[in-house]
């Protein structure tokens, strides 16, 4: 445990966090801070932008430039910020409800543009802040406060969604593998283009309790059998992959231009047209 990370990057006077004991958000936040630290990024050029929800509260414990915006809108604010100052490293902290439901449109359009944002989704399969309702990533059959007979809506696979929308770096990490999570986030931060990291996480207080999954420790252990690396998954059949969660790097490509770069070309064209 490197305590320097905490004193260096956290607003310690804002502690303790409002997260419940056993919440996965702390592991994700720690991985992000370690990634930022190891990459030696100029922290004054890092801006964290978040929306609304348990995940988005993360910015309220950070000693960086931070913007805690409206529900679903973090990516919209971040897009304007990045375009106004492309030198900034803009990191969006969001959750499954924030980025895939109310903010789903901004998510896919940011991917389409391939704008250089790093979007980190703390995916705990339910709305924690409002008390445990089903979200667009809740597995079918799950108990939530708004699916008392079992969730019946098909969930999104956020990695497939962002990949098909055009994201050029897509990965899934899990709180069960924090060091690998840090490494994946590091690669996301270094990527030039839109990077999306889906962080599989737990909400013991609500999703866990409502589905009788035990305490935080027991929930964490459940991941052990469910997580399958992307390399291993390639060798498994569809039946074998049922109820498994595939983690690792899905997309890492540089075959598409980044949006700020594209816009710089637009500026050049406009100036040429104006002068000629």
């Amino acid at each position: 445990m490197n305590n320097d990370i905490y004193t260096k990057y956290l607003a310690l006077d804002k502690m303790p966090t409002m997260w419940c004991p056993g919440c996965g958000n702390g592991i994700v936040l720690q991985s992000i801070l370690r990634a930022v630290d190891e990459l030696n990024v100029d922290r004054d050029k890092v801006v964290f932008v978040s929306g609304i929800g348990c995940s988005s509260r993360a910015v309220n414990y950070l000693d960086f430039d931070c913007m805690h915006t409206n529900h679903g809108r973090a990516i919209a604010f971040a897009t304007g910020l990045k375009m106004a100052n492309p030198d900034l490293h803009v990191i969006v902290l969001t959750g499954d409800g924030d980025c895939a439901s109310i903010g789903g449109n901004h998510l896919i359009h940011a991917c389409r543009r391939n704008i250089d944002l790093t979007i980190i989704c703390m995916n705990n399969s339910n709305y924690g802040m409002t008390g445990g309702q089903y979200s667009p990533t809740t597995p079918i059959g799950s108990q939530t406060k708004t699916s008392v007979y079992g969730s019946y809506e098909p969930p999104f696979d956020l990695c497939k969604l962002t990949e098909s929308a055009g994201a050029t770096y897509v990965a899934r990490a899990a709180t069960y593998y924090p060091l690998q999570m840090k490494e994946l986030i590091k690669k996301a931060l270094q990527h030039h283009g839109l990077s999306f990291v889906d962080c599989a996480s737990d909400c013991p207080s609500l999703f866990g309790r409502l589905n009788r999954l035990g305490d935080a420790g027991q929930m964490m252990l459940r991941w052990k059998d469910r997580l399958v690396s992307v390399q291993k998954a390639r060798m498994l059949s569809e039946e074998e992959l049922e109820n498994k969660v595939v983690w690792g790097e899905f997309v890492n490509k540089d075959n598409r231009k980044e949006y700020c770069d594209i816009y710089a070309e637009n500026i050049a064209k406009a100036k040429e047209a104006a002068n000629g």
């Binding site: 932008v49 913007m67 915006t69 409206n70 679903g72 809108r73 990516i75 919209a76 604010f77 971040a78 897009t79 304007g80 910020l81 990045k82 375009m83 106004a84 100052n85 900034l88 449109n105 901004h106 359009h109």
Partner: peptide, 14 residues
Amino acid sequence: LSSIGAVIGASCAG
């Protein structure tokens, strides 16, 4: 929604 969001983001960058 994103138009005004982006405008606010840009203003925060000065």
